[in-house]
Amino acid sequence: MTESEHRKAGTEDRPHLFIVSAPSGAGKTTLCRAVLEAMPDLVYSVSYTTRAPRPGERDGIDYHFIDAERFKQAIQQSRWAEWAEVHGNFYGTSADLIEDALRRGQDVLLDIDVQGAQSISGRYPEHSITIFIRPPDMDALRRRLESRQTDSPAVIERRLRNAEQEMAQMHRYRHVIVNDVLEKAIGELIGVIRSYRSSDPAGGVTGVSR
């Protein structure tokens, strides 16, 4: 997308929701951390979950860990911009955080799944910039999942099946980035985000898009 096309879309005059999705193992978390290091003024939306923390996860940084009763209360109070139940656990994105940031004119980075991305972009269509991170191929994704040594073979197979379903939805995203070489993918993701941020002095159009 060219700079003039951004202007025609009016995206330079409003805060953005940069919605990043990817199959498990595609490197989304690593890429988002690199974006936040490059642009620390971005608001990062930390998701809420009712599942137990995994080893090394920190409350308020990786997730906000809350109990199911509190999560369900927030559903009744319409406090989630999107939420879902996955394998018996709830996951949600705070509507308060997003709407407070938009009111202040701040851009937000969201690391959420395909279902959540559709919900957020449907609720805030004029602010949403959707970006899908994909592996170079399914064999590479399998190798990455196996190399983590955190999941059983059955769980890896389930993640691969889910990945195929998620990748079938990537045509819905405005930008698709292939994470083959990590540093290259980081540069492309930062370039896409900067191309929308007219206030970013390092901004520029990269041409990285589907």
Rank of each mutant, 00 (worst) to 15 (best):
M1W: 01
M1Y: 03
R7E: 08
G10Y: 05
E12Q: 06
F18S: 02
I19S: 07
V20L: 09
R33H: 06
V35W: 01
A38F: 05
A38H: 03
P40Q: 12
L42C: 05
V43I: 12
Y48W: 12
T49Y: 11
T49E: 12
T50D: 15
R51Y: 05
P55I: 14
R58K: 15
I61Q: 14
I61D: 15
Y63N: 13
F71G: 02
K72G: 09
Q73G: 14
I75C: 11
I75W: 06
E85P: 04
E85R: 02
V86D: 10
V86N: 07
H87D: 10
G88V: 09
F90R: 01
F90H: 04
T93L: 13
D96T: 12
I98M: 13
L102N: 06
R104H: 12
V108I: 08
L109F: 13
D113K: 08
S119M: 10
S121K: 00
H127N: 09
I129W: 00
I129K: 01
T130H: 06
I131S: 00
I131F: 04
F132R: 02
I133C: 07
I133S: 02
I133W: 02
P136C: 11
P136K: 06
P136S: 13
L141P: 00
S147T: 14
I156V: 14
E157S: 15
R159V: 08
Q165F: 13
E166S: 15
E166V: 04
R172D: 10
I177T: 09
V181Q: 01
L182E: 12
K184S: 11
A185L: 00
G187W: 04
L189F: 04
G191H: 05
G191F: 06
V192C: 10
V192R: 00
I193Q: 08
I193G: 09
R197I: 00
P201Y: 07
G203W: 01
G204E: 08
R210C: 14
